Amino acid sequence: MFDLIASSADTIAALPNPNPEQPPGTDGFTTLLNWIAWGVIVLGLAGFLASAGYLAFASFTGREINGFKGLVICIIVCILATAAGTIIAVFV
């Protein structure tokens, strides 16, 4: 029984640990993904500033909740855009 456990532990230790490598010819695709990520972050920042301005203006009319929702959505978008690589790496 003990030998079976020891042999299964050796088998697990012998599994390969591959290192991800970018395929040749995909430099343009990586550049495109970087540009898209940059655009999403810029749009998120612009949305954040617009929502902050709306929040300041809406405080006079009593509709602050709409500005607050916009701020929260923009913060979530920026967090997801900057953490997308890490999130995908967890699942791949």
Rank of each mutant, 00 (worst) to 15 (best):
D3F: 15
I5S: 09
A6E: 03
A9L: 15
A9D: 12
D10V: 08
D10K: 11
D10I: 08
I12K: 01
I12E: 08
L15Q: 13
L15G: 07
N17V: 09
N17K: 13
N19S: 10
E21S: 14
P23W: 05
P24L: 03
T30G: 12
T30S: 11
L33W: 09
L33C: 07
W35C: 04
I36C: 05
A37S: 08
A37H: 06
G39A: 11
V40M: 13
I41M: 10
V42P: 11
L43V: 05
G47V: 02
G47A: 04
G47Q: 05
L49N: 05
A50W: 14
A50V: 12
A52N: 04
A52W: 05
G53H: 11
Y54L: 13
A56I: 04
F57L: 12
F60H: 05
G62T: 07
R63H: 14
I65N: 07
G67H: 10
G67Y: 12
G67N: 09
K69D: 05
L71V: 01
L71C: 05
L71K: 05
L71Y: 05
I73R: 00
I73K: 00
I76T: 00
V77H: 00
C78A: 05
I79P: 01
I79T: 00
I79Y: 00
I79V: 02
L80M: 06
A81T: 01
A81N: 04
T82M: 02
T86A: 10
I87W: 09
I87P: 03
I88H: 10
F91Y: 07
F91A: 03
V92A: 06
V92L: 07
